[in-house]
């Protein structure tokens, strides 16, 4: 899978470096190992320079929104994350890492999220067990390179009691006491409420797609930089 995606060959020949933000919460090793498994050079890091140099950035997250937000601030990784988003490099928020990209969460009132996506994270509908701790089937609402080759309804593993409200970024939903936002995207900022690093082969395919996106984005940036350098050179020659 993924062999037909743009950048696949490039990703294999020259694996992109992906920084997994390490802000001291729970199990971060799984995300790192899963990314390595699909061919990335994954670095679990809290180092701002290392993050700035990576081809793409992953923001994992488990536990409470407020606590994760606090830990991000304490380690200065909130700024590193926002810088990464602003740089246009591919970015992936996972679970609470997705939720942190929004403005706020009902779980931790009064605490501001990173505000990359407009909107609020809300508690799941009553009448179902919470957390949703199970595999569920996605309904893909929009085409995205993140889900390339996965079919219409891939199975993914969820663990959460809160989820983003639907918005223009909606990429996929699942059904759990109502429609639940399962993935979102704005340009190259991706977010999954499910855990791709814990969703078996289907989850690994999502991560492989992300690695390919990172490789093609790196390629595109390199081309742009080369073009700019060329233009600058031409301008200089004309000036001379």
């Amino acid at each position: 899978m993924g062999s037909g995606s743009p950048g696949a060959t490039d990703a294999e020949a020259n694996p992109p470096t992906i920084a997994v933000l390490d802000y001291g919460i729970g199990n971060l090793r799984s995300a790192e190992k899963a990314l390595e498994h699909v061919g990335a050079v994954a670095v679990l890091t809290a180092d701002a320079d290392e993050i700035a140099q990576a081809d793409a950035v992953v923001l994992p997250g488990v536990g409470a929104f407020g606590r994760c937000r606090e830990a991000l601030a304490k380690t200065g990784l909130d700024e590193a994350a926002l810088n990464a988003v602003a740089s246009g490099r591919p970015f992936l928020g996972i679970c609470v890492g997705m939720q942190l990209l929004y403005d706020s969460s009902e779980e931790s009132p009064g605490i501001a999220g990173l505000g990359v996506f407009a909107g609020t994270v809300r508690r799941l509908q009553p009448g179902v067990k919470q957390p949703q701790m199970q595999w569920n089937q996605l309904s893909l609402m929009n085409d995205s390179p993140l889900f390339e080759g996965l079919g219409e309804n891939p199975w993914m593993y969820f663990v959460h009691s809160f989820a983003a409200e639907p918005s223009q970024y909606l990429l996929a939903t699942c059904e759990y006491g109502g429609s639940v936002v399962a993935a979102a995207q704005s340009e190259l900022v991706f977010a999954t409420q499910f855990h791709p690093e814990k969703s078996g082969q289907a989850g690994l395919a999502v991560l492989r797609n992300f690695v390919n996106i990172a490789a093609s984005s790196r390629e595109a940036r390199a081309q742009r930089a080369a073009q700019q350098a060329q233009l600058a050179q031409q301008a200089q020659r004309r000036a001379v």
């Binding site: 729970g26 199990n27 971060l28 090793r29 799984s30 190992k33 899963a34 498994h37 593993y157 663990v159 855990h195 690093e197 814990k198 969703s199 078996g200 082969q201 989850g203 690994l204």
Partner: peptide, 28 residues
């Protein structure tokens, strides 16, 4: 954690927050 990409739980002998932290950091 290097070879298995579905969730796994480790039980037995967890008596402190530190015990839990070590297991979670290792990949549980």
């Amino acid at each position: 954690a290097e070879e298995v990409f579905i969730p796994f739980t480790v039980g037995g002998g967890v008596r402190t927050v530190e015990d839990a932290r070590r297991l979670l950091r290792a990949g549980a």
